Amino acid sequence: MRILFVALSKETKTGARYTEEIIRQALSERHEVEFLYPNLRGDARLTSLLYLSCFGYLPLLKRGLYDLVFTSDNFVFADVVYVQPPAGQDAVLTWDEMLFTKSSKGHFRLLPALANSPLKTLISAHAQFITNSNYSREVVRRNFGKDAFVIYPPVPTHLYQSLESNRENLIVTISGLNPRKNLGLIAEVGIKIPEAKFILLGYYHKVHVHILEHIQARFRTSGLGTNFVYVPSCPAKVKAKILSRAKVYFHPTPFEPFGISIAEGMAAGCIPVTHDSGGPCEFVPGEWRYRSVEDAIAKIRYALETWNIRRATEFRSLALRFEEGRFRNEILDFVEEKFSRSCRMAGKLKPKDALAFSGGES
Rank of each mutant, 00 (worst) to 15 (best):
E29T: 07
T71R: 01
T221M: 12
L318Y: 15
K247F: 06
I271M: 04
A268G: 00
Y135N: 03
R137V: 09
E282D: 05
G202H: 08
G278E: 07
L318S: 13
F322R: 06
F129T: 12
N143A: 02
R316L: 11
A113T: 13
L201E: 00
P154R: 02
F322M: 07
V209D: 15
T19P: 02
A263D: 08
A236P: 03
L170C: 03
R341H: 15
A91I: 14
V76I: 14
Y135A: 05
V229K: 12
L60P: 04
L332N: 09
S133W: 10
E314C: 07
F149D: 03
Y82P: 01
L40C: 02
L4K: 05
D96T: 12
A268Y: 04
D295G: 10
G278K: 08
I262E: 05
L93P: 15
L159N: 14
N132I: 12
L185F: 05
S72W: 06
L201M: 05
I151K: 02
R45H: 03
A319Q: 01
I191T: 14
L320F: 12
R142W: 01
R341D: 15
C54Q: 11
V6P: 05
G202W: 10
V150C: 09
P38E: 02
I174C: 12
N39C: 10
Y51C: 00
V172I: 11
P38T: 00
L332F: 12
S317L: 08
E330G: 07
K197N: 14
G64P: 02
R63C: 04
A263T: 01
G145M: 03
R141F: 12
Y152F: 13
G278F: 02
T101N: 13
V207F: 01
H205Y: 14
S28Q: 00
P59L: 05
A125E: 15
L243A: 01
I151C: 09
S117W: 15
N182G: 05
F129K: 11
H205C: 04
Q25N: 01
R220Y: 08
S317F: 13
H205I: 09
H31N: 13
I191S: 03
G225C: 05
E294Y: 07
W288C: 00
T221H: 13
F327L: 12
F108D: 14
S358L: 15
F77I: 06
T313I: 08
G176T: 10
D90N: 11
K10G: 07
